[in-house]
Nucleic acid binder design. Structure first.
Length: 305
DNA sequence: ATTTGTGTTGAG
DNA sequence: TCAACACAAATG
């Protein structure tokens, strides 16, 4: 779907993104309802909208628009005044950031913000004009009961990463998790094994944690604290991960969590240390691809951000 | 025949 | 920036 060019009549230095915001507090403007929804009113007495960014249409419907860099960006027409208002809110959120002035109290859910940030303004505008935003958002956000569906990149918020040591990928079947990171991002407190406590059932043996990888595959590791080395470790299940991912010393494991509404589950992925022959080969292949023209790999279409 | 949404103007 | 208003372009 080619867009971007036609939606905006004037948009050159499009550098606006969710990063550049620091405005006023979120203000709630609109409220109840009480519109003489009566169609066709003498153009003279046509009601002006009580909502920001909403303008009456000659046929009794409502249009939504937002201004950007001196020009107007049309967000479409709607049957209901409030539907138009909501459309404006979404656009405002995407164009001006989470602190944008909106008609309704936005439930600034992390998931929706991430969803918005992951789409270009043009894409968002397009969804609004087609009245398809809610669906797309829902679809992007849900991935609940569904099975092996990878959490979309935009919904992953990084926690921390660690370059694995030789022993992490050795035959000890354990990954040492940096203490500070562990206590900050993993279930805590994780009851530690104390000589005194002896047989405190609970989680003296650690807890089982699920981690989803980039392919949507779920890995389960035992997470526990080793008194002997005074360190947090991922044990049971770890060696399998190392083997299957072909993890080598120096590679980096990245831990993140899902920003989707539901239970924030943990995610794990690894960045291979680019060095070995395969990587080189891959690079060469990539070069060849580029020689044939435009970069095929990069995220296509999506412009601006 | 309608509806959408752009041109344009003037107020804030 | 923003909405009111007029009306041409777009759609069915």
């Amino acid at each position: 779907m080619e867009q971007e060019s036609m939606v905006f009549s004037c948009n050159s230095g499009g550098s606006t993104s969710m990063e550049d915001d620091s405005f006023q507090e979120l203000i709630v403007a609109g409220d109840g309802d009480d519109v003489p929804a009566a169609a066709e009113l003498p153009s003279s007495a046509r009601p002006s909208s009580r909502y920001k960014g909403v303008v009456p249409q000659p046929n009794g419907r409502w249009g939504a628009q937002i201004y950007e860099r001196h020009s107007r960006v049309w967000l479409g027409t709607f049957a209901d005044e409030d539907a138009a208002a909501r459309a404006y809110d979404v656009a405002a959120l995407r164009f001006r950031g989470r602190d944008a002035v909106t008609n309704y109290n936005n439930n600034n859910h992390a998931g929706e913000l991430a969803f918005l940030a992951a789409h270009s303004k043009a894409e968002v505008v397009d969804m609004l004009r087609k009245h398809t935003y809610d669906d797309e958002l829902r679809q992007g956000l849900r991935r609940g009961a569904a099975r092996a569906q990878p959490t979309p990149p935009w919904a992953r918020e990084p926690l921390f990463e660690k370059a694995v040591t030789p022993s992490d990928v050795g035959k000890l079947n354990r990954l040492v998790v940096p203490k500070q990171q562990a206590e900050r991002h993993f279930p805590f407190p994780l009851r530690r094994n104390t000589a005194a406590a002896g047989g405190d059932g609970g989680n003296s043996k650690g807890v089982l944690l699920n981690f989803e990888d980039g392919d949507g595959k779920v890995w389960r590791f035992r997470y526990s604290y080793w008194n002997s080395s005074q360190s947090y470790v991922l044990t049971k299940g770890w060696s399998r991960f190392v083997r299957e991912k072909g993890l080598n010393a120096g590679d980096v494991v990245v831990f993140s969590q899902s920003a989707l509404g539901m239970e924030k589950h943990l995610l794990i992925d690894c960045k291979k240390r680019r060095n070995n022959k395969q990587e080189v080969a891959a690079d060469e292949a990539r070069v060849v691809v580029k020689l044939f023209g435009v970069d095929i790999a990069g995220d296509k279409g999506v412009v601006q951000r």
